[in-house]
Amino acid sequence: MSEVSTREWLLSDQPSSRRQAKLGQAYRTWSQLRRNKLAMVGLGIVVVLILMAIFANLVAPFDPLRGGDLRTERLLPPSWINLMGTDDQARDIFSRIVHGSRLTLMVVAMVAIIATPIGLAVGTTAGYFGGWVDTVLMRITDIFLAFPRLILALAFVAALGPGIENAIIAIAITSWPPYARLARAETMTIRDTDYIAAIRLQGARSPRIIWGHVVPLCMSSVIVRVTLDMAGIILTAAGLGFLGLGAQPPQPEWGAMIASGRRFLIDFWWVATMPGIAIFVVSLGFNLLGDGLRDVLDPKGEK
C-alpha cells in the first residue's frame, strides 16, 4: 500500500473492520500529538532512554562495574575517551549512566505496572458502587495518602531491607492512591450517564460494566497522570538510592552515583553532576510527554 492510501485507509469514515477502526482512532490521536512540538521532544527523550537501556551493551564503551587502573584512571575529567569522566573507582561515568538507564526504566515500568491497576481497580470500584464500599476503600486510600511519600517508602525499605526490588515495591505502594482518587472522581461522573444505564438495562453485571465500560474511559486520564508522575518516581528512586536504601553498590543507579560523587563535588564536579543531568533530562522528558498526552487524551478537552 502506498503512503497516501495508507493514510486514507486509516482516516476512513467507514472502517470495514474492528482493526481498521482501532488503528484509525490511534492514528488520529497520534497525528494530534505530533503537532505538539514539546511533546515530541519529550517522546524523543523517552525513546532514547528506552533504546539506551536495550542496547546498553553496545552503547557503553566500558564495563560499568569494573574500573580501570586505580592509580592512573581515577577521577579523570571528561575527555574523548571518557565522555563524562571517571569516578573514584576509575569507572567510566558515561558507561555507568547508560547501564543505569536500565535500572531507571525498570523502576518506572514496574511502578507503572503495579500501581496503575491497583489505583484503577480501587478507584473505579469505589466510585461505581458508592455507599459503604466507597467509604471503606477511600478511607484506606486516605491512610496511604496521609503519609509523606518518601517517608513511607523509607519505612518500607527499612522493614524489607535495602535493594532495588524493595524500593520498587515501596514506591508502588505509595503511588497508587492518587490514581485511585482520580479514577473514582471520573467514575462518579460516568456512573450516572445514559450509556451506563443502557448497558445495565442489557443485563450486564457490575464487574463487566466496570471493566468494559468504565475503566476504558478512566484509562486516558490515569495514563496522563502516571506519565506526569514518572518524573517524581524517578526522583524518589534516585532519592532512595542517594540515601543508600535503593540500589546497592556497585549497581550503577543514578541516585546512588550522585551520593558517591558528593564527596568530591568541589574538586571533581562531574562525578555527581553527570548523573544529576541524566535524572533531570529524563524527568523533563516524561513531563513534556505527559503534558502533550493530556492535551490529546483528556476527555474534558473532547467534544
Binding site: P15, R18, T193, D194, Y195, A197, A198, L201, H213, P299
Partner: peptide
C-alpha cells in the same frame, strides 16, 4: 423490556464502535 434514551449524544459509549 428495553429502553431508548432521549439524548443520542449521551446514550452511546464514546469509546465504543457501533459494532
Amino acid at each position: 423490556v428495553q429502553m431508548v434514551f432521549q439524548d443520542p449524544y449521551a446514550s452511546l459509549h464514546p469509546r465504543h464502535t457501533v459494532d
